[in-house]
Amino acid sequence: MKYLKTRINKIIIAVLFCILPAGGLTACKGPAAPPAETNTQIPSESAAAEAAGTQENFSPEYPALTPERENSPTSDVSSENLPYDSETIIEEQSFSGMDLGDYRNVRFTTSLVTRDGQSHIRYSLVSGEETAYTFPDAYSSWHFEDTINFITFHDINGDGKKDVITSEQYTTGAGSEDARIFSMVRIYLNQGKEFLFAEGLSISIGNSLEVSDGDAYTAENVLSVLSEPAYCNFDGTDGWTKGEIESFAFLVKEDVLTDDREALSRKVRYPLHIVRDGSERQINSPEEFLENYDLILNLQVIYDVEGSETEGLFWNQNGVMLGTGAVWFGKTEDGTVKITAIPAEVQYCNPLNVD
């Protein structure tokens, strides 16, 4: 129940062949987010660091790299000439001396891999001669074309940790005459020891950028979509951004699905007021939240979160709603996004009485 792959594939196909117009939920009119600057050529590692030092939105350690499409770094690598289940590191898209999450001074490697003759892209973190971490696979049913649109490292949800955002070009499996080239985005949210693939948020970028237009898939365009004020906060200031709100919703759902109680307890604004069995209670700390976890997250709440979408969420003066009202959240006084309410009386249909 964790991910509804069939539904997501249908969404991708609809985006590909219907070419949805640019749009999305834009509830607040705040000042447009400044575009993220990015290089237009693949520099060497030293040149990338030097060039990134002049970029306003990126520290020298985290350049935004966008290769020229005419000189794609993998254009001379043919999957037909590679052995079965092979892996070839793409040096031009691999970067040394990276600090990402709990991984220090590691090499971010981009590899072209083949499975059953089909090409895919794999990202990893390498320490010395050992692979310290391999990023979750994505879009394994699509055939990687030959172009990586960009790789960039940017904190999209304001938690102080650099997330990893990439974009690649793929082709449909409709045959040589009908095959179409399209672009997709991968958003990996930095959780310290692991990077979670925010699949829904990644795919929803296609609602704002035409997947058939490779030139639209640049770091600055993707970051502009993620940083646009898309949810009102009703206090007279700019709206909350798509990136920070929808990534938070994704992480809340992930915590519930994996029963990561401690992680969820850190996402709550205290005191948290709840009503259970007709009685009002106040939860004052993460420790108290954990002690009363099964009471707070009763089956109504869990079922509702499990079936929730995490993009294009409903919002009003109370904040942003996950599911049909199981969880409410929004920005707090210190600028962080927190859960503000977990009502029990949500409308969830459970006709089979599944526990």
Rank of each mutant, 00 (worst) to 15 (best):
K5R: 13
K5Y: 15
N9A: 09
A14K: 04
C18R: 09
L20I: 01
A22C: 04
T26V: 09
A48N: 01
A51K: 15
G53T: 03
E61I: 00
E61A: 05
P63E: 15
P67C: 05
S72D: 11
P73C: 00
S75R: 01
N81G: 13
L82W: 10
D85E: 11
E87N: 02
I90H: 11
E91M: 02
E92P: 10
Q93S: 07
F95P: 15
D99S: 06
V113S: 06
T114G: 09
T114C: 13
H120R: 11
H120N: 07
F135E: 01
P136V: 13
S141N: 13
W142I: 01
W142S: 14
W142P: 02
I151E: 04
T152H: 01
N157F: 01
V164Y: 05
G173Y: 04
E177F: 10
E177D: 14
E199T: 11
S202R: 05
S202H: 09
G206C: 04
S208Y: 09
L209P: 01
D213A: 11
G214M: 15
D215S: 14
A219H: 01
E220Y: 04
E228M: 14
A230C: 15
Y231N: 04
G239T: 07
W240I: 15
T241A: 07
I245W: 13
I245K: 05
E246N: 08
L251C: 09
L257S: 13
K267R: 11
H273T: 03
R276I: 12
R276W: 01
S279L: 08
S279C: 07
E280M: 00
Q282Y: 06
Q282W: 07
S285R: 10
P286S: 08
L290A: 03
Y293P: 02
D294F: 04
L299T: 12
L299C: 10
V305T: 03
V305C: 05
G307V: 02
T310K: 00
G312T: 09
L313S: 00
W315G: 15
V320E: 08
G325I: 05
G325F: 02
G325W: 06
A326R: 05
G330D: 13
T332M: 05
T336D: 04
V337S: 06
K338H: 04
A341T: 10
I342Y: 01
A344N: 09
Q347H: 11
L352I: 14
L352Y: 11
N353R: 12
D355T: 14
